[in-house]
C-alpha cells in the first residue's frame, strides 16, 4: 500500500520511528499509551541511542512494552522496575536505562521502589503514565483516581472519607534531593504532546550527563475503562484531570536548566 516517494515532488514530513517494532499494539483504540511509546521511540531515534538503551517494563497495560520497542528490554516484577533499572544501570553504566510504568504499578505497589531510587539519585529515567485507574485489570480504583471518580471498584465515586486522596507522584518525588528533573505533562492535544516529547528528550539528556534521577509523568486517557469515546476522554482529561494534576516543572536542578536541546 505504500507508494514510492518522488523526492522531486514530495518530501517526507513524518514516518513511524525505527525504534518501534512494525506491529500492531494490544492497546485499546485511542489509548495514549501508544503516543507515549511513539514519543520515547522518536527521542531515541533522534539521539541515535537505540543500540545503547535498555528499557525496563512494568506490570499493567504496559506489560507488553517489550514487544513494541525495538531495543533491549527486561520485564520487572510488579512495581519493581526502578529497583531493576538501578541494577542494570550500575552494572552497565554506559547504557541508557529507562523504566516505563503505569500508575497502578508505580504509584501503588511500586511506590517504595521509585521513592528510594529517586532518593538515591539513581541515574535512570522513569516514564510514568497516569490514567487514573488500573487499566489492565478492568478499571479499578488506583491511588491516582480523582475524588468522586466512578470506577469498577468505586461505583458510587471515590469517597475521600474512606479511600483517601489521590497521590500526586510528581510533587512527591520533587521533594527528594536525589531527583534532578521531575515534571508532569499531558497527552491530550498536539501542543501538550510536543511539550511531553521535549520533556522526554530532556530526561534522556539528564541521564547522558549523569545528573541523576529524572521522572516524566504523562497524563493519559483510558477510553475503555472510563466508558467514553477517545475524543470524549481527551475532553474529560483536560477538564477534570489537568486541574487536579497541574502540568508543571516540579524539580529542575540548576545543571539541568542549562541543557539546551
Amino acid at each position: 500500500m505504500t507508494t514510492t516517494l518522488d523526492p522531486e515532488l514530495e518530501q517526507l514530513v513524518y514516518e513511524r520511528p525505527d525504534s518501534l517494532v512494525d506491529c500492531a499494539t494490544h492497546y485499546c483504540p485511542g489509548c495514549t499509551h501508544g503516543v507515549a511509546h511513539r514519543l520515547i521511540a522518536e527521542v531515541i531515534d533522534e539521539m541515535g541511542i537505540r543500540e545503547k538503551t535498555i528499557g525496563v517494563a512494568s506490570v499493567g497495560c504496559s506489560v507488553f512494552a517489550y514487544n513494541y520497542f525495538n531495543f533491549d528490554f527486561v520485564q520487572a516484577p510488579h512495581g519493581r522496575a526502578p529497583a531493576m533499572a538501578t541494577g542494570v544501570k550500575r552494572v552497565l553504566p554506559d547504557r541508557f536505562v529507562i523504566t516505563y510504568q503505569g500508575d497502578g504499578d508505580m504509584a501503588s505497589i511500586g511506590m517504595a521502589e521509585v521513592v528510594h531510587a529517586a532518593a538515591r539519585g539513581e541515574n535512570i529515567c522513569v516514564f510514568f503514565i497516569n490514567n487514573a485507574n488500573y487499566g489492565m485489570t478492568g478499571g479499578q480504583m488506583a491511588p491516582t483516581t480523582l475524588p468522586g471518580q466512578k470506577t469498577s471498584s468505586s461505583p458510587s465515586g471515590r469517597d475521600i472519607e474512606t479511600q483517601g486522596y489521590p497521590i500526586r507522584a510528581a510533587e512527591l518525588l520533587a521533594t527528594l534531593d536525589g531527583a534532578s528533573y521531575v515534571v508532569r505533562r499531558s497527552l491530550h492535544d498536539p501542543k501538550n504532546i510536543r511539550l511531553a516529547k521535549k520533556a522526554i528528550r530532556t530526561a534522556f539528556e539528564v541521564q547522558a550527563r549523569g545528573l541523576g534521577f529524572s521522572m516524566v509523568e504523562m497524563l493519559s486517557i483510558c477510553p475503555t475503562n472510563w466508558g467514553m469515546t477517545p475524543l470524549q476522554s481527551l475532553q474529560w482529561l483536560e477538564e477534570k484531570m489537568v486541574p487536579y494534576y497541574a502540568l508543571n516543572d516540579f524539580k529542575v536542578h540548576p545543571a539541568v536548566a542549562e541543557i539546551r536541546i
Partner: peptide
C-alpha cells in the same frame, strides 16, 4: 497541507505524512 498534526496525535504511529517540495 501535510502539517503532520494527525501523526502527532496518532497512538498507533500508523500515519505517514508527505508534503510537496518547495521546488514544486
Amino acid at each position: 497541507t501535510g502539517c503532520g498534526i494527525c501523526a502527532v496525535v496518532c497512538p498507533e504511529a500508523a500515519i505517514t505524512v508527505f508534503r510537496e517540495t518547495i521546488k514544486v
